[in-house]
């Protein structure tokens, strides 16, 4: 908070009310967002009996064995590896492809460009579960069923509308004069993209990239539909191994969920935070 240099009494009262309101607001969200995490971690140390009968009590005995079960999940390192490859590759492919497309649409003029943008962005609305049969046919037809490559292409494609939408929004607001100056300096079309627009769109790329990464990390239905063998299985499929037709080992599954969450949290805390703070400080420098 900045030091107030104002004199009027009502002004100070408003500032004080805003301050109380602010902390109430912060705390409310803190509780509601932190609660699931705490619950998740505590529950992952319970027995299934405790989990099903006393959902909010502390475990009598802390069941580290749940974590042992989760760690012994078949091929855990491989699952991790696959998830990382898929999520990272998809994020790169998707944001790159989407930013190139968004650049052409946002920074050039051609017939039907707005129509094109609107059509692509309308893809955000599509309930992708409706597309299982055609997606399966596509992936099977291209011979990339049960490959990580198939998943990467599919995930990259699924996230095109949202990425184009977000990135285009950021690109559209970059001053045209910057590019015009660059053209005078002899920059080519692709240099305008790589040297000027792309670097200036970093907040958009990070915003879209974060979304895409988390999507890939947590996606289940298409991972299940488009892969079958251990070679291309991802973590979300691994977690389901604590489930069977009639009985679920809830607490080992929760332990597995906790383990699988850690990388995403780390990616978020370290990468995202760093990029975002880099961005804002970079922006001030112009």
């Amino acid at each position: 908070m900045k030091k107030s240099i104002n004199r009027s009494g009502s002004h100070i009262a408003i500032q004080a009310a805003a301050k109380t309101g602010k902390w109430f607001y912060i705390l409310f969200f803190l509780v509601i967002t932190f609660l699931p995490l705490v619950w998740l971690v505590i529950s992952s140390f319970k027995t299934n009996f405790e989990f099903e009968t006393q959902a909010f009590a502390l475990p009598k005995v802390w069941m580290w064995s749940n974590y042992k079960n989760a760690m012994s999940m078949a091929g855990l390192p491989r699952l991790f590896m696959n998830s990382i490859i898929v999520a990272a590759s998809t994020t790169i492919v998707n944001t790159l492809v989407a930013s190139m497309g968004a650049f052409a649409i946002a920074r050039e003029t051609f017939r039907f460009q707005n129509l094109l943008l609107n059509i692509i962005v309308a893809g955000v609305l599509i309930p992708i579960i409706a597309l299982m049969v055609p997606f399966f046919k596509l992936v099977n037809g291209f011979g990339i069923y049960d490959t990580l490559f198939g998943l990467i292409v599919t995930y990259s494609a699924i996230n095109i509308p949202i990425s184009v939408f977000l990135i285009h929004g950021f690109m559209g607001s970059i001053p045209r004069e910057l590019e015009e100056a660059a053209v005078i300096d002899g920059c080519s079309f692709s240099q305008r993209f790589s040297k000027i627009v792309f670097p200036l769109t970093k907040p958009g790329l990070v915003t879209a990239g974060t979304f895409v990464f988390i999507f890939c990390w947590n996606e289940f239905i298409y991972a299940m539909l488009l892969t079958s063998s251990e070679v291309s299985r991802t973590l979300q499929l691994g977690i389901r191994f604590f489930r069977s037709q009639f009985v679920v080992d809830y607490t080992s599954m929760l332990a597995a969920i906790v383990i699988t969450m850690i990388p995403t949290i780390l990616v978020y805390v370290f990468l995202h935070d760093r990029i975002i703070s880099g961005l804002t400080s970079g922006a001030v420098k112009g």
Partner: peptide, 20 residues
């Protein structure tokens, strides 16, 4: 930047292929 991006794209698409 441009070269790095191209390299990343190629890597992202081929690495999973080799693994398979």
């Amino acid at each position: 930047t441009w070269k790095i991006l191209a390299l990343l794209l190629i890597l992202a698409l081929t690495v999973p292929g080799f693994l398979l």
